[in-house]
Computed example of a mutant assay.
Amino acid sequence: MTNLVLMGSKQWSSCVTNSTLIDSALITSNCGKIQTMKLLLHKSMKKVLCAQVENLFVELLFSFLIIPLGTFVRLTKDNSSPVGIINLYDSISCLGDGNHLKSEAVKTMLLCPKLATEYLRVTELLPIYEGNTAPGHFLKEQARFIVSDDLEVTISQSLDIISKFNTLGVPVGDMEVLEVTVGEKEAISLLKASLTSTSALTDSLDLFRRKQKVKPST
């Protein structure tokens, strides 16, 4: 995570917990179902300041924009999901008794809508694609990105992110870099948070911590 944290400066290394910040691949793939990313945390606030990621994670986030609302509810249904959407979804059960909806196919279409045929399979972390969906990508070339807690995606520029947050009032000693893996459960948590929260990464932090990548001892 050299570009995110150090940017050629060694002065931060003694201040940041888990500071083995070598410039290695930030996201790996195991049949497309495991991704690794690095989070910059505000420790005392238990908040994610930002994440440094590469294409695969951004492809996952962008795929949220093409998911039908019915599929969103099916994947994330619980009391923290938008109430109006939940009520609409539950109403189908009442109307789908054979007396009101046109057919069982209509009920299935509303409860389990499929992606439009022109969309590509860009991630394996969400169970939203048909078996014949063609693989593809939204992004043109490999790059490194910064994702904010509210899921704003920007290109990772050559600047010292820790210095930036320190200027904004976050003490350097109160920051920590955490390397985590993301699977289907975490992806669905992020999907839900993207529609219900302005702190999607922080809302998924407990899940991230449970799957924290353990580095081999040297």
Rank of each mutant, 00 (worst) to 15 (best):
A143N: 15
T198L: 11
L41E: 02
S194V: 04
I162K: 09
S194M: 03
F72R: 09
A193T: 04
V53Q: 02
F165G: 01
I85N: 07
F64A: 01
T196N: 04
A116E: 13
P216H: 07
L61Y: 04
P216S: 12
E152F: 11
T17W: 07
K38T: 12
T76W: 07
I188E: 08
T154A: 14
N55G: 07
I27L: 11
K77Y: 15
V106G: 05
V83C: 08
N132I: 11
Q212A: 13
N79C: 09
I27R: 10
K185D: 12
S14V: 06
E118W: 09
E54Y: 04
L39Q: 00
Y129S: 02
I34Q: 08
I67H: 02
I22M: 08
K77P: 04
C112W: 12
Q52P: 00
T28F: 05
S80W: 09
D206T: 13
S19L: 07
K192M: 06
P68F: 07
G136S: 03
L205Q: 02
S103C: 03
E179D: 08
S19P: 06
N87F: 09
L126H: 03
E176C: 14
E124R: 11
T117P: 07
L60A: 00
V172E: 10
N132P: 03
Q142E: 13
S158G: 06
F145W: 15
K114Q: 14
D160V: 13
V58Y: 01
V153Q: 02
A193C: 04
L88Y: 13
L69F: 09
K47P: 01
T108L: 09
L61E: 02
S156T: 05
T76I: 05
T2W: 12
L125N: 03
A143T: 12
I155K: 11
N18T: 07
N87W: 10
T167V: 08
S44N: 11
V180E: 01
N30Q: 15
V58I: 07
K192F: 05
T218Y: 13
L151D: 00
K77W: 10
V180P: 07
V58Q: 02
D97S: 08
K102I: 14
A200V: 06
I86N: 14
D78T: 03
Q11D: 13
P82F: 00
L75W: 03
K10I: 09
I86D: 06
T133P: 01
K213S: 10
S9K: 15
I188A: 10
S217N: 12
S163F: 08
L120T: 14
K102G: 12
